[in-house]
Structures are given as C-alpha cells and as structure tokens.
C-alpha cells in the first residue's frame, strides 16, 4: 500500500469516525430501538464509488472497530459489524449498476441491508425473535435516512471530483 493511499484512507476513516462519534451523542430521532441517521455511511458510499470495494471495506472495518471502542458497547459493536458487512456486500454490485447521478439508490439499499444485518445479529445475540416486530419500522426508517446519506455522498462525489 503506497503512502498516498494509506494517508487518504486514514483521513477518510477519521472523518467517518468523527461522524459516528458525534452522532452517538445525539438523541435518536424516534424512540424505536435501532433507528439512527447513519451519517458514517456517507463516507462508506463515497469511498466505494470513488476508490472501490477493497478500500471501502478497509475504511468500514476500521471505523466500526474504533467506533465501537470510542462510543459504544460490545453489543453495539457486533450490530455495527453485522450491519456494515451486509451493507457492503449488497452495495458491491451496485457500483456497476448505478450511474453517478443514481448514487442515492446505493444509500437507500445500503441502509436497508444494514438494518437486515443488524437485526440478524440482534436476534442471535438476544436469543429472542420478539425484536423482529421492529423490522418493517427499521427498514422504513432506513429508506429515509439512507436517502439522506446517499444524497450527501452523491453531492460529495460530484463536488470532490478534482481531489481527495
């Protein structure tokens, strides 16, 4: 890995980590467990489209691990990991399916995949299917927040075409 790429990935990871940590301090928008804005996803989507799947995975994993240590518990780290990995897997083929102006779709589908992965980990960890009641509500909220973060990533990609 050359120095330029290493520095760039470190910078982007730091940016994602800041978004993640700041968001963890804000009260959740609605009292439905698991609903959050997912601002750090802006960085994941941006890196995926600009630098490719491998770099996106590196930034994602580093951010999830450090984010869990800074602003979470062991349980929430597992949720982020399950959600993040499924999100990455689902958005992987989208890179070839979407044009630059359709990047927001990646945000929406990625957020929904994140919810599914998080819910799977949740059922496994809690050992109860009672939480599945929240799945439709989570997916719906994921569509809204994913649209927001997807549009943000799209704007970033268009603006930052020159550098970074």
């Amino acid at each position: 890995m050359d120095t330029k790429r290493l520095t760039r990935l470190a910078l982007l990871t730091a940016a994602a980590l800041i978004l993640f940590t700041v968001e963890a301090q804000l009260p959740p928008p609605v009292p439905i467990p698991g609903v959050k804005l997912g601002l750090a996803n802006i960085v994941t989507v941006y890196v995926l489209f600009r630098y490719g799947a491998r770099d996106a995975l590196l930034v994602l994993l580093t951010r999830v691990l450090l984010g869990g240590m800074f602003a979470g518990s062991a349980v929430t780290l597992l949720f982020s990991l399950g959600g993040g990995l499924l999100c990455w897997l689902v958005t992987l083929p989208l890179r070839k399916l979407l044009t630059e102006k359709q990047l927001w779709v990646c945000g929406v589908l990625g957020a929904m995949a994140h919810d599914l992965g998080q819910m799977a980990v949740c059922v496994a960890v809690y050992g109860t299917a009672a939480v599945l009641v929240y799945l439709p509500a989570l997916l719906l909220a994921g569509m809204a927040t994913g649209l927001f973060t997807g549009l943000a990533a799209q704007g970033l990609l268009m603006k930052a075409r020159g550098g970074f």
Binding site: P33, Y126, V131
Partner: peptide, 10 residues
C-alpha cells in the same frame, strides 16, 4: 418489546 440495545436488554 422494550429494547435497550447498548445493554442487550429486552
């Protein structure tokens, strides 16, 4: 259910 995700309580 009531869920406290950070503590793993349901």
């Amino acid at each position: 259910p009531i869920v406290c995700a950070p503590h793993g309580l349901v």
